[in-house]
């Protein structure tokens, strides 16, 4: 085959993301090498976690944090999926054209809100299910003079984290689901309506099953965003990596990103550049997080393929 310059040029440019990806993974592996011989695998994948703030020696069990990530991400999905579905179904099936367009535009714009804004304003929602002593509605006066107290000592709750993460991922999920619903062939919808099925029945039995690959893709995207987010978690969840006592104690639950932030010194600057071992464990934790993201990616791809096969000839 004759080599043309467009082919050579686009090859050279196209290979750069691959190299950068290898660089990212290589750096993470390189820096976590200390972990491999200073901390055993048995300890890493155990529930024993202790940091020196509590007077003990360092112990790095990551399972409590992995559990925390699962909890927070599942909660975020449990909130954002119904809302995104409602938005998508309403915008594409129930609303008139103009209302749907306005809703889509608003949502598209909201996708531009940076995560740190959600973190910064999470105190608005702090009263929701979080502080038992909170007994009055926040007034406008309260909101006009928000507290700037040290965030590390603020009331924490994984439920608040889940709510804020859900708010962050809804503007990304809803348009994807909306697109999947609009791509359902009109002939199937018409056939269902012509058979005397109502709109709601058609949505439940024809449109949503057909849009399922798209919905799964949207969920996976939301999952990735919620999993990797450090900032919202820093504002809302406790980030010490402890196993909560009792295990359902949401005020004491830390996702993996929180633990990474704490160990690497992002959220605890006194530690920054001081301890090679904690830094190394935080790099190892990013690898664990990447592994979890890969599992989600694989599962989502498999499910999508399966459903696509089921719903097309």
């Amino acid at each position: 085959m004759r080599r043309s310059w467009p082919r050579a040029l686009s090859f050279m440019l196209g290979i750069i993301p691959v190299l950068l990806l290898l660089l990212v993974i290589g750096v993470a592996v390189w820096f976590s090498s200390l972990t491999f011989y200073r901390v055993g695998w048995g300890e890493l994948f155990s529930f024993y976690y202790q940091n020196y703030r509590q007077g003990g020696w360092w112990e790095f069990g990551l399972l409590p944090s992995i559990m925390g990530t699962l909890y927070v991400v599942l909660l975020a999905l449990a909130i954002s999926l119904p809302v995104s579905l409602a938005i998508a179904v309403y915008a594409s099936e129930y609303a008139s054209g103009a209302v749907g367009r306005v809703l889509r535009t608003i949502l598209g714009t909201l996708a531009g809100i940076p995560p740190i804004i959600y973190g910064l304003t999470s105190f608005i929602f702090l009263g929701f299910f979080v502080s038992p002593s909170f007994t009055r509605v926040k007034t406008v006066v309260d909101l006009a003079a928000p507290p700037l107290h040290p965030i590390l000592d603020q009331q924490k709750s994984a439920i608040l984290g889940g709510i804020m993460l859900a708010l962050m991922i809804i503007p990304f999920m809803a348009p994807l689901i909306d697109e999947a619903i609009r791509n359902v062939p009109a002939r199937l919808k018409e056939a269902s309506l012509a058979l005397g099925a109502g709109k709601w029945h058609t949505i439940g039995h024809i449109i949503l099953p057909h849009a399922l690959p798209g919905i799964i893709g949207a969920c996976a995207l939301g999952c990735f965003k919620a999993m990797g987010d450090l900032i919202i978690v820093a504002f809302t969840c406790r980030s010490n990596g402890q196993l909560p006592q009792p295990w359902w104690d949401v005020s004491n639950l830390s996702p993996l990103t929180g633990t990474i932030g704490w160990l690497s010194g992002i959220l605890y600057p006194a530690l920054l550049g001081k301890n090679d071992l904690t830094l190394s464990v935080s790099y190892f934790s990013t690898l664990v997080l990447l592994g979890m993201a890969l599992i989600v990616l694989g599962l989502a791809t498999l499910l999508q393929r399966w459903f696509r096969k089921k719903y097309t000839a």
């Binding site: 062939p185 002939r187 056939a191 005397g196």
Partner: peptide
Amino acid sequence: LLRRKVGMVFQQPNPFP
């Protein structure tokens, strides 16, 4: 109710999956 009384067959066959 109308569409239960008045059925329809389309140009392209469109069975459900």
